[in-house]
């Protein structure tokens, strides 16, 4: 039987009180911070694009993309006390987990199902992130199951008198799940230090938003639970950051939960196994592609004088080099021995 790296589980899910990373989020992103946000977006995008290629080349088995969601994810992540606050993500949160410090090598080990994949050791499908060093909890495939769990993380934090805020993410489709209703009910009743981020890309695989809900905005659903509901342009880093910062600050101050809708664009099909031409017209796909948040943010930073062509080129070079390195590393890594499939099933 293999020895598991259960350093985290062994001490009964304790979480370090201090994290070496960023201690506090800035009320408005500093220039350095904005450039770092841009770099995270570029790194996430280049890795995401490479994964699509790797899948089409038959080198990885699956990919589920965050392209078009990066501005919102980076905005939310940088509003967190990264590594200290909890993230219970969903499978589209590539830029978010990169922003919280999950290494690219670790992510690609998961895509290849290779030994050392920290998320699950190759047990879960790709993009089912779990990375305790960054306080990232385990992604499930059935949607919305993380919501009551996130409420539980937040409830425990409140009971213990801790100051961590729990951030959890879902798509707009998962807001139809019963777990969404139940979790937000708890959140309202107990004024939990929780931010529920809904990355609304208007499609649950192929089902459009108007067949998912009869309300205009996902944020409208918040009224039923006595919590804040906020809807922002998730293609804009500044708007996403500001809304997330306010929600997180309120949660930390004891003012309860925010349902934060970030309106994003799903530029790719749902996953590597989806064909969105069966339900989106070429015109619509072109329209969605034109909403790409990455060139928009780049343009904003150039106009603010924070990015120069040389910096853009250097960031691109670093991102490509990081992807190349991670790919070499993951592809050359061994598969886990078959004993790893056997367990352990139970914790000590």
């Amino acid at each position: 039987m293999l020895k598991l790296d259960t350093a985290g589980a062994k001490d009964h899910n304790s979480h370090a009180q201090e994290h070496p990373g960023q201690a506090t989020a800035h009320s408005a992103p500093t220039p350095d911070c904005l450039v770092e946000m841009y770099e995270v977006m570029v790194r996430s995008r280049r890795l995401d694009e490479r994964c699509w290629l790797l899948h089409r080349q038959g080198r990885i088995g699956f990919h589920i993309s965050g392209i078009g969601h990066e501005a919102a994810q980076v905005g939310v992540a940088f509003a967190m006390q990264r590594g200290h606050d909890f993230l219970h993500p969903y499978y589209r949160d590539l830029a978010m987990v990169i922003a919280l410090g999950m290494p690219m090598r670790a992510i690609l080990l998961g895509s290849f199902g290779k030994q050392g994949d920290p998320s699950s050791g190759g047990r879960q499908m790709p993009n089912h992130y779990c990375y305790k060093p960054a306080s990232i909890f385990s992604v499930s495939s059935p949607v919305g199951t993380q919501l009551p769990q996130a409420a539980g993380l937040a409830l425990a934090e409140k009971l213990k008198g801790g100051n961590r805020v729990t951030v959890t993410c879902i798509g707009e489709g998962a807001t139809s799940e019963g777990d969404f209703h139940e979790a937000l009910d708890w959140a309202g009743v107990h004024r939990l230090p929780l931010v529920v981020v809904v990355e609304n890309n208007e499609y649950a695989i192929s089902v459009p938003m108007h067949l998912q809900m009869a309300v205009e905005r996902v944020a409208d659903r918040a009224a039923a639970y006595g919590i804040r509901g906020v809807s922002v342009d998730g293609l804009d880093v500044f708007a996403s950051y500001a809304a997330a910062k306010e929600a997180i600050d309120l949660a930390r101050a004891g003012a309860g939960t925010t349902l934060l809708e970030v309106r994003v664009a799903r530029i790719t099909p749902h996953s590597s196994d989806d064909n969105d031409a069966t339900y989106r017209s070429p015109e619509e796909k072109a329209r969605v592609r034109a909403q790409d948040p990455l060139p928009r943010f780049q343009k904003q930073l150039v106009e603010m004088g924070l990015l120069t062509p040389a910096m853009i080129a250097e960031i691109e070079r670093r991102a490509q080099a990081e992807v190349d390195d991670a790919l070499r590393y993951a592809e050359n890594a061994p598969y886990p021995p078959v004993e790893w499939a056997m367990g352990p099933v139970f914790a000590d």
Binding site: H12, L155, L159, D179, W186
Partner: peptide
């Protein structure tokens, strides 16, 4: 006392357990 919602009685329990309770 919880809301009358069994899925979240367990789901909240899972989250609290993962946060040391």
């Amino acid at each position: 006392d919880s809301p009358l919602a069994e899925s979240s009685i367990i789901g909240v329990g899972i989250g609290a357990a993962m946060n040391g309770m």
